[in-house]
Design a protein around this nucleic acid. Structure first.
Lengths: 370, 370
DNA sequence: CCATGTGGGACTTTTTTTGACCCGTATTTT
DNA sequence: AAAATACGGGTCAAAAAAAGTCCCACATGG
């Protein structure tokens, strides 16, 4: 029998290690995004005791990663550098690199990036996903491209984390669809504009009322201005989109229980650009509206960057991101593990647990998070 | 300012980690070589509390690396496999790979292998060095070679750790010099025979009285049998030798304080094949005797495997193993760090400490070791 | 048959960790 | 300007973990 012990052998010798490393890394990462921040805020955020946080911070301070100021805890230069550069090392240490490879094989797409942590229990993971996706996005950009972006918190995070630096010339950013009734920060229009601003590119928007009848849509299609933007959108060569769960989307549309029941009946698990997919990736429903038609995108779309995380979206991700050689997936650890567990009945081994810094909540805990 | 944080970043996040890993590894390694062995023996050997050992063993048992039997602690299959395969990973984790590269550059020799630990405080390190050297030795062997070995504990360890498997045909093992008065187990003759046995090769020995006058040596030289073996020795294409410190050698020769003082005066720090070297690698003295003449070895020697460890031998190693492109050095962590610190005024960074499992000795401790 | 070394159990002491405070101050909000 | 908030730091006791120190029953080997 051959024992395949490689870079993870250290964690086998010190099984308590991953927990420690993850806890400190999460703290560091949170401080990175939220500094200056206080002990109590951190403790509340991660559901840890205040004293535990203090101890960890002391260690991090001794290591020179954080400095303590009157306003709160901040990262030192070394700390910032650490957060930025530790990722590849941490990923291999936590087995995420292996996870990426297994997902790549399972989903048969071009590229998979898995970010450590669980988006649902640590909101900072969303930002980290955004940062990773932003880097991928920049790699995809070429002169005179049209980039279409969708709405949602995930894409908003990408926009947030994009560095402010000029992209190749001639790029136009457009929303993939006219506004779906959402918070303005998460609307495709808003995100497109913010992305364009970060990239120093131009952008075109498509403002539409929330719910339109078929007749109204037909009428709008005859408008030259609208037509023009739609053509632009459908000539996109790069797509950046999140994934909605069916429940989320139905709720966001203000749909009644009736409609939600219908979606569930059809087995809808994920939504992209207003199109609902079931487990197998088939289209089972769509929201009437104007914009990009994913099915019609054939030749000229080169890269589809899918960014979504959280255990709840696992099924949706697997359904949407499967079997497209043009797809690039950016997700988080919890979603990645969930997908693999569901899809291939993951032979659960020791150490494949996902570590979260917090403790079990007790009665009396304040569960609100910053 | 550029922060070079790479694979060691994990240890920066968890500074207590190297100590834990090294401790467990040392325990595992000791068990590997000495099983079955009991808690108390381990505790005494490593100068640890019995309870500490018990706890570590519990963890190692939970991890499936050791099993506890009535006769003592033994390694499981997984444990054996771990000890064998963790080495490269551990080396990079402890920065030994980097250490090897720096030594390679400093000494300008062909190859450097650094084994974790300190030979002086953990005798098992000697065996580990032997195992590494044995592997190197096997790589060097080609058909019809003559292999000359020296005496000493280091070479004895190599002989011990050599696997029993046939070497290329036609190999002859010889002692590099006639017996210097030592314990028989560590004499070159003994070691040559044991190496040959492991390699399934033939061997020739050269038995000589301890101290001989010049006249006696000259007379022996005229003996055909002796002459024949000497020719064989001097046709060696592979050398395997340890390094003696001057003190050690003088003591072993039973030399009086007078002679030791003379050696010290001349600056002798290391000895190989009865030849003493000073800091710079110059020959400052020699023990009269018959055998291999290192200086005359020119063309036909292809590989010189130097195996020596321990902080005390650092200077000797640096003096002897320098500037020979044919040299391969196998040493331990403590010697390697000491060499670098002395030779290039090592800019001491955090984490470059060498971890030993024990604690500081107290009064009342039983310091004897198995 | 006894000396030695083994694991396991039990107990106390010591150290570390954690929780729960309070305090003075700087900053923000009212 | 005053109140409220959030910050770091300090302190103390409870709790938990670790470590030291025994003793016992059992095997093994001289």
């Amino acid at each position: 029998m051959s024992w395949n012990i490689d870079q993870d052998s250290i964690s086998l010798l010190a099984p308590e290690l991953p927990e420690i490393v993850v806890r400190r890394y999460c703290l560091l990462r949170k401080i990175y995004y939220c500094s200056p921040i206080g002990r109590r805020s951190l403790a509340a955020y991660f559901n840890m005791g205040e004293r535990v946080v203090r101890r960890e911070i002391d260690i991090l301070r001794e290591q020179g990663f954080v400095a303590i100021e009157r306003k709160g805890i901040v990262l030192t230069t070394a700390g910032k550098s650490m957060v930025k550069s530790i990722m590849p090392c941490l990923k291999s240490f936590l087995g995420l690199t292996a996870l990426e490879e297994r997902l790549l094989e399972l989903l048969k797409i071009r590229r998979v990036i898995v970010v450590p942590g669980d988006l649902e229990s640590d909101a900072v993971v969303l930002l980290e996903m955004g940062r990773a996706a932003a880097r991928v996005l920049r790699e995809c950009l070429e002169p005179d491209m049209v980039l279409a972006v969708s709405g949602g918190t995930s894409c908003a995070a990408v926009a947030d984390m994009l560095s402010e630096a000029p992209a190749p010339p001639g790029i136009t950013v457009v929303p993939a669809r006219g506004g779906l009734g959402e918070v303005v920060d998460y609307q495709a229009n808003t995100i497109a504009a913010r992305v364009a601003q970060k990239l120093r590119s131009s952008y075109r928007l498509l403002h539409l009322p929330d719910s339109l009848s078929q007749e109204a849509l037909q009428m709008l299609l005859r408008e030259e201005k609208v037509r023009e933007i739609l053509d632009l959108i459908n000539s996109a060569r790069v797509l950046l989109h999140g994934i909605g769960t069916a429940e989320e989307m139905a709720r966001r549309r203000g749909a009644g229980l009736r409609e939600m029941g219908r979606l569930r009946e059809k087995g809808a698990v994920g939504e992209v650009f207003g199109v609902f997919y079931n487990d197998s990736g088939d289209v089972v429903d769509r929201i009437p509206g104007l914009g990009l038609y994913l099915e019609e995108l054939s030749g000229h779309v080169e890269n589809v960057i899918v960014v979504a995380g959280g255990r709840k979206k696992a099924k949706a991700i697997a359904a949407v991101a499967g079997n497209h050689s043009r797809d690039l997936l950016v997700t988080d650890e919890s979603a990645a593990r969930e997908i693999l567990q569901v899809e291939e009945g993951d032979n659960l081994e020791g150490g494949s647990d996902i570590f979260v810094p917090g403790r079990l909540p007790r009665e009396g805990d304040n569960l609100s998070r910053s």
